[in-house]
Amino acid sequence: MPLIAVRPAAVLAGSGFRRWSAYRQAAIAGIFVNTVFGVIKLSILLGVADSAGGRVGGYDEVGLSTYAWMSQALIAVVVLFSWTELADRVRTGDIAVDLARPVDLQLAWLAADIGRAAWALLSRGVVPILFGAAAFGFRVPRDPTAWLLLPVAVTLAVAVSFACRFLVNLSAFWIIEVRGPVTFYVLVSGLLGGHLIPVQLFPEWMQVLAYATPFPSMVQSPIDLVTGQAAGSEALLLVTVQLGWAVLLLGLGRLVLRRATRRLVVQGG
């Protein structure tokens, strides 16, 4: 990113943050729902651990609690639900306005998304973790590298998630109704990313499948840093894989956007 683009990006991130912070009532409702789902998810996982004799997939009970509350906290941060903002702009034709702006479209949206994620982390992320820690226990990492890598890992998780959503939303250039593809994406990324149940609990074949996709980089990887499932060089490897996916998918997004724009220009929308 050229230096001159840094300021607009920061401004865009700031406006993303402010725009979302306006919805306070919605945030409280969201926190409540995240917490209820967290309790249900954790209850099921603790039931599994109980049947398995206390430990499952390398998690003890506090480990499962840590997993459950981290995964709930990340929902709003990495957007594990359907997101069609970009597709809506494509459908209405407003995308032309975005394309006409003197900033790079993908980086502008990424900056706004990181601003949104920062707000989501503070508003919807922290409370479920505090609640879960108080009610069920939470293990903070002892490994200092985990603390150093965690902010990087969460940011990269947002970037990977954004890159995926960007690609899925761009399909609006070719098809009328994106609800189907978006639902597919939300379901598959939630399951394979380790949001419903930790990837470590998957059967062998599903783990192989999951790690062939970018989805664990969105959810499971930051969680693994906290639970200590990945420590030291393993943690570094996780973050490197995240970075790889982010670069690859953002690059792919640019390529697809270029084709889509050419289509827009040639066919006039």
């Binding site: 099921i44 599994v48 049947s51 398995a52 609990l201 998957f202």
Partner: peptide, 12 residues
Amino acid sequence: EVYVVFHQVHSL
């Protein structure tokens, strides 16, 4: 989710 759970244990 049910399937994965019962991959780990025989009863829930």
